[in-house]
């Protein structure tokens, strides 16, 4: 297997062969995975699923439908509250992972992809706010343009160009966020759930030593 020289074989051994089926879809977890803190990751994913489902409905009916239809307004409300739930659970998930120092044991990439997912979510959420086609979106777009313009980004991402913002919000950014989230989940499954921290009484010296030891 290692002697294979084809590109395909190299990609296979670097990707799919790294996974065992029970890592990807486990039916057992280490005994220390026993706390409610572990539910916030899956609640975040579930909220994202709800955002995508309600977003599908809004997409099929178009950006201005919800102003004139009661059903449309309700679907918009589902979309908004799913977003609020999504951010609530994502931030609490982040708090939990911080206090667990969950980057230990070569899990730095998991931490980084999680942070990137957070930032991509903020930008995606923001583009959603500026395509509401109402007073709120007008105000946010005219205010936020100054921040992007000051950084030189405004020349390419024009918050006042509603058509551009719609395309970003329903196609490009969900794709980017989707890739980051899938990558994050694969890393979580591949590396497994981080084990408990060793207890250290006084200085954190021994912790540092332990970290370097790996």
């Amino acid at each position: 297997m290692a002697a294979e020289s084809s590109w395909t074989a190299k990609v296979r051994s670097a990707t799919v062969e790294k996974f065992e089926p029970e890592d990807l879809l486990p039916d057992h977890q280490p005994a220390y995975v026993s706390s409610w803190i572990y539910v916030f990751g899956v609640l975040t994913i579930a909220s994202l699923a709800m955002i995508i489902l309600s977003g599908f409905v809004l997409t099929f009916e178009g950006p201005a439908w919800w102003h004139s239809s009661n059903v449309g307004h309700y679907v918009n409300s589902v979309h908004l509250w799913s977003v609020e739930l999504f951010f609530i659970f994502m931030v609490v998930h982040l708090w939990g992972k911080f206090w667990m120092a969950a980057w230990r044991g070569k899990r730095l990439a998991t931490w980084i992809t999680g942070c990137l997912a957070f930032f991509a979510s903020i930008i995606t959420g923001f583009t959603g706010y500026i395509i509401q086609t109402n007073f709120d979106s007008q105000w946010i777009a005219t205010q936020a343009k100054d921040g992007f313009n000051a950084m030189g980004i405004g020349a390419f991402f024009n918050t006042l160009n509603t058509g551009q913002a719609i395309l970003l919000h329903v196609s490009l950014l969900p794709l980017v966020l989707g890739i980051i989230v899938v990558w994050h989940i694969i890393l979580v499954r591949r590396k497994g759930v981080v084990p408990p921290m060793e207890e250290v009484d006084s200085a954190t010296r021994s912790v540092e030593t332990m970290e370097v030891k790996k």
Binding site: W66, H67, H73, Y74, N76, S77, V78, L80, W81, E84, L85, Q132, T133, N134, F135, D136, S137, Q138
Partner: peptide, 12 residues
């Protein structure tokens, strides 16, 4: 939550 609290829509 959507049923209870709806969502804002101040006219443009």
């Amino acid at each position: 939550l959507a049923g209870l609290f709806s969502s804002p829509d101040e006219k443009a």
